[in-house]
Amino acid sequence: MRQVFQSTFLQSVGYEKSGVYKLGCIFDRMNTLSALLKKEILLEWRQKHALAGVILYVLATVFVCYLGFQRIESVKTWGVLLWITGVFTAFNAMQRSFSTETAGTQLYLYTLADPRFIILSKAIYNAIFVAVLNLVSVFFFLLFFGTELLDSVDWSQFLLGLLLGSTGLGLALTFVAGIAFKSQGGVGLVAILGFPIIMPLLITIVRHSTAALEGASATSNGLNLMVLLVLNIVSFVLSYVLFPYLWRE
């Protein structure tokens, strides 16, 4: 009764059209989002064995590269190996993104929050996660292969590209993982659907990283960065628009 009174009263004074209300809504959404994001991070933190598993995977991949190559002859190989590791790590991390939650949990989340925020929180979390994992793999690469080839590296550019590439992978693959999860087609489906989807991103990021490692100027590499940004935005917008349809049962 009190709620009804409040809402009609607030409507009558035009509260819903006021900037205060809209700002309140935005804050409300930010709260939902941050709560969901917090939930993702907490879940990851509580399953430390899984986290350790992914990092072990990165370490093992880089170590296999080291055993095979001993030393890397060209900067191009450096860039390509780094991103092959990055992609497989991203796939590995992504496969747990949806499958760790039971159907009951998902239904519960669905009643609590807009599905857009669910995908958004997952995508943002995965983007951060992939970026961190890629940084770890860069660390391992430097550890095993040394810095002999990397005299003229533009580190700020390289890291910016790494970040954008990781977020792009995170955004696109989260969405694909959602589709694969819903279709119940098994674990392999993420790779089948995901690989062609991320191909343009992958080509661009390899090109960008290689150029940055070779020490290309920011202007000559700017186009690759632009393409990366555009691909990020495209996958973000598509995920945001299409995810509610995916979530509807």
Binding site: G186, L189, I197
Partner: peptide
């Protein structure tokens, strides 16, 4: 890549 994406589309269909 476009070819691969559309093949993936049909794989998705057949696995659902």
């Amino acid at each position: 890549v476009v070819f691969l994406v559309y093949v993936a589309y049909f794989i998705l269909r057949s696995s659902t």
